[in-house]
Write a protein that binds this DNA or RNA. Structure first.
Lengths: 165, 165
DNA sequence: TACATTTCAAAAGCCTATTTTGTAAAAAAT
DNA sequence: ATTTTTTACAAAATAGGCTTTTGAAATGTA
């Protein structure tokens, strides 16, 4: 909340982060066992890491197909002008629309968003709203429908990355 | 594990699913309060929903920038032939490579994967490995580097979707 | 050496998860 | 309408984990 203290990421802290990333619902005891600490020591370190903002926001995947009518799409936006002010306006608008589940800024004023809508009609209408709004300065929208999710996101490839510090 | 029993998704179950989706680390007591049930009743319903596979796989977001050296990219694959057998081979290969964090099948033998690598060099090398393997039948690879993640995935827009049943 | 700091494990108390039980309401059957 | 069955809930009880406190060991520092 206040600042963001820096914590030295030794082997144990790294193991805690890697474990919690994939298993947010683990009990403190199990976590302690996996990283080789007593429950109390593990609890302190985990609490410190969480409060320092190293990890946050526990979520759960849902079986969308069984629960909701929906379509998935990859929506690409091209802005008319790629400058900081135009980008900020556009990004703020996207932030407010939950159907655009995330947003990546690519090269040359392009954005890509992984999008979920109740139907293709709704998706189409949503894209129209965006492109009809002159304040957002969207030159082009490209919608690519998702046929199938062949691999689900299950976390970052931590074992392949290089730890900082 | 065995089958997948169907549970009627009344208002309370819907509220449980929507809440757990965004707050996987909630205690059973808090969850019970939010959905308006006693802890025991809430526990039973939540357990039943989990065991029936309605939700699964609790994860936690990490502050990647502070922890890891990494680059993000959107990688697009075009297969030489779009038939079930070619697709299955390709999909199985992607499944085994953790750097490809997810994979979406689009129209006409195209795939898109959100990818994380320790460096641009590593990303380049990884893409080469894929395209050099004749078994995978990849005709073309397009790599689009992510400049910035302007919106983080925080879950599905459940309030915008239509519940099934 | 002496001191301060850090990190841990053990113990204690508190709180929560989980099971069990009984009851009330709803549904089905007679 | 009455009985039976089923379902869902809350309350109570138990078991177990969480969280704090404490002191000791290890590490670092003057």
């Amino acid at each position: 909340m206040t600042d963001k203290p820096t914590i030295k990421l030794d082997d144990i802290n790294r193991k805690i982060l890697a474990t919690v990333h994939l298993n947010a619902d683990l009990s403190n005891q199990e976590l302690a066992e996996r990283v080789g600490l007593s429950p109390s020591a593990c609890f302190q370190r985990t609490k410190a890491l969480r409060e320092a903002g190293y990890f946050f926001n526990a979520q759960t995947d849902m079986d969308l197909d069984r629960i909701f009518e929906h379509v998935l799409a990859q929506v690409e936006f091209t802005l008319e002008s790629n400058n900081a002010r135009a980008r900020k306006t556009f990004e703020a608008a996207i932030e407010e629309i939950p159907e655009f589940m995330d947003c990546l800024r690519m090269n040359e004023g392009e954005y890509i968003s992984f999008t979920c809508c109740p139907s293709t009609q709704a998706l189409n209408a949503l894209c129209d709203t965006i492109s009809e709004n002159p304040d957002l300065g969207v030159k082009n929208i490209k919608v690519r429908m998702v046929m199938e999710r062949t691999k689900w996101y299950l976390g970052y490839p931590l074992e392949k990355l290089k730890w900082k510090e």
